[in-house]
């Protein structure tokens, strides 16, 4: 059995389809995550991230295709599969009226940990999440960051091989967010396979590999750096205090594919073939704004891939 487990991916989706009434929430989704890999599923709200994750962990039955955890089909999940899987839902999912200790105790019992084993795991997990001091505090009295750390600890109690996280940093302050990420890297280094869903591009850029999800479809998938390298357009930054006026003026220039507000100005994506014409027209049209080339980033990649996909 261990041969089968080690040779198969930790998490796998093959042609997954899931509908809710007329909405196709996930459409022909395939992906595969290896042990020790950190995979980010990125997309805006409603893209189908949560549905994809719930299909993978076996909470939903697919209308088509198949999801597997360590080689076993998710929705037919037996206890063995669930013992190798940790899942942290998007919304609150622990008992607010129970303390940190009581929540851990409860999930420890459900996972069938012996008391020695449980004590060791709790000591370790509370240590790495720095929650030891708050053991007696009720979960609903924790800050967003501490709550997510507790949820992570609960999902890790039984030493899963695969961890599935739905927007783990949602509602978390920047410091805790950084701590959570450090924790994730450590876990991945220890060989855990991690799949996380996020709407944030900066977070996606920190994953080993990302899948861009839009309207339930995977529109691109690769390492973030590779996706940026493969970016074919050019990116410019226009400094403009009056952004609306600048946007209106730039909108019709040749080669302009996308305009998005950014800090003190606009980010402009221009098709490489039209870059010459764009720069010439910008100069001749007597624009009062300052234009400078800038390095394309992951956000530009996602934006353009989405436009291309439509």
């Amino acid at each position: 059995m261990s041969d089968v487990l080690t040779s198969s991916p930790a998490l796998e989706a093959r042609g997954l389809v899931r509908r809710f009434g007329r909405t196709v929430a996930v459409s022909d989704l395939s992906l595969s995550i290896a042990p020790g890999e950190l995979y980010g599923l990125v997309g805006p709200d409603g893209a189908g991230k949560t549905t994809a994750l719930r299909l993978l962990v076996g909470l939903l039955t697919p209308d088509g295709g198949e999801a597997r955890v360590a080689g076993a089909v998710s929705h037919a999940a037996g206890g063995a599969l669930r013992a190798s899987l940790g899942y942290m839902p998007q919304q609150y999912s622990l008992y607010g009226d129970l303390s940190i200790d009581e929540n851990l105790r409860f999930f420890g019992d459900l996972f069938g940990l012996s008391s020695t084993n449980f004590r060791e795991r709790v000591a370790h997990l509370l240590g790495i999440t720095q929650l030891t001091r708050f053991r007696d505090r009720r979960a609903d009295a924790l800050s967003g960051g501490m709550y997510k750390k507790l949820a992570l600890a609960c999902a890790l109690l039984h030493r899963p091989r695969a961890l599935v996280l739905d927007e783990p940093t949602n509602g978390v302050d920047p410091v805790s967010r950084r701590e959570l990420w450090e924790l994730l890297y450590t876990l991945v280094d220890e060989g855990l396979a991690v799949l996380l869903a996020t709407p944030y591009m900066d977070e996606a850029a920190r994953c080993h590999r990302v899948g861009l999800l839009q309207g339930g479809r995977l529109i691109a998938e690769d390492a973030p750096a590779a996706l940026v390298r493969a970016f074919e357009d050019l990116a410019y930054f226009v400094t403009a205090a009056d952004r609306d006026a600048a946007e209106a003026a730039l909108h019709d220039l040749p080669g302009v594919r996308a305009l998005s507000p950014h800090g003190p100005g606009l980010r402009v994506i221009v098709a490489a073939a039209d870059a010459e014409a764009f720069r010439r027209r910008f100069a001749s049209a007597d624009m009062r704004w300052h234009l400078e080339p800038t390095a394309p980033d992951f956000e530009d990649v996602f934006l353009m891939r989405s436009i291309d996909a439509e």
Binding site: G58, A83, P89, Y92, L94, G96, L110, F111
Partner: peptide, 14 residues
């Protein structure tokens, strides 16, 4: 309603 069922159902609980 509070989402805890979701968390329980991914444990090996029958």
């Amino acid at each position: 309603e509070s989402g805890t069922l979701e968390q329980i159902l991914v444990t090996p609980l029958g």
